[in-house]
């Protein structure tokens, strides 16, 4: 699903955020991306969603080489990826329903189909009763679940999450991780960046560890 082949990212200042990173995430696989703050976790995710472009090396997402994706092709790539952010990135002047519906509106789904799928996604994250609420009326954990519902409502084959539990207490964090595991069981490939080692210690998934922009450990290849 994701292939990194000797990928480096150098910022305009000359700073190397990633150095020669290579790994492969299989279709339907779930993995954690860990490392200290500034190790390059977010950079990996941003490269996958083409929020930035790699300086060197090759990245393939869902069978498509990212170097071949033009500006016009960007929307299509991003629609095949569900993204969850630490700060949720919800729209505060829209209801929970409208926030979750956004990817479907963009995809041009009919009103009925949109309503049906938004309800299904909200049901999955346990927020069906809050569809008319505005994000500010929700707790941090609930807001994050709205963000997750929005990321999966259009059934993307790949789910990326950047510090999805960064602002949550351990209890809520475990719930969020359980949600990701559930989606993974439905066949979605999942890559979660987190520095919360305590949280993932007991989870049975592959862990990729970054240090100063280099991949220093991969639990799949001891």
């Amino acid at each position: 699903m994701i292939l990194f082949n000797h990928v480096s990212k150098r910022h305009p200042g000359g700073f190397e955020a990633l150095r020669e990173v290579s790994f492969e995430l299989a279709r339907g696989e779930m993995a954690f991306l860990t490392g200290h703050s500034g190790a390059g976790k977010s950079t990996v995710l941003r490269l996958i969603a083409l929020l930035e472009r790699a300086s060197f090396g090759q990245i393939v997402v869902n069978g498509q080489s990212l170097s071949g994706v033009t500006r016009r092709g960007l929307p299509k790539l991003r629609r095949s990826i569900g993204m969850v952010f630490q700060n949720h990135k919800l729209l505060h002047d829209r209801t929970v329903f409208d926030n979750v519906a956004l990817p479907l509106v963009i995809a041009g789904l009919s009103r009925d189909d949109t309503a049906r799928r938004v309800h299904a996604a909200l049901d999955k994250v346990g927020l069906l009763s809050k569809e008319r609420a505005y994000p500010v009326m929700l707790s941090g954990g609930e807001q994050q679940r709205v963000g997750i519902a929005r990321a999966v409502v259009h059934k993307p084959p790949l789910l990326l999450a950047d510090e999805p539990t960064g602002n949550l207490d351990p209890e809520l964090s475990r719930e969020v991780m359980a949600l990701f595991q559930e989606f993974n069981q439905f066949g979605v490939s999942v890559l979660v960046a987190t520095h919360d080692l305590e949280l993932i210690r007991h989870l049975p998934h592959r862990t990729l560890t970054l240090k100063d922009g280099q991949l220093v450990a991969d639990s799949a290849t001891p």
């Binding site: 960007l74 990826i81 993204m83 956004l102």
Partner: peptide, 13 residues
């Protein structure tokens, strides 16, 4: 701009 940014993130053309 928030809305535009999020829309772009989600894959709006």
């Amino acid at each position: 701009s928030d809305e535009i940014e999020v829309s772009k993130l989600i894959g709006a053309s």
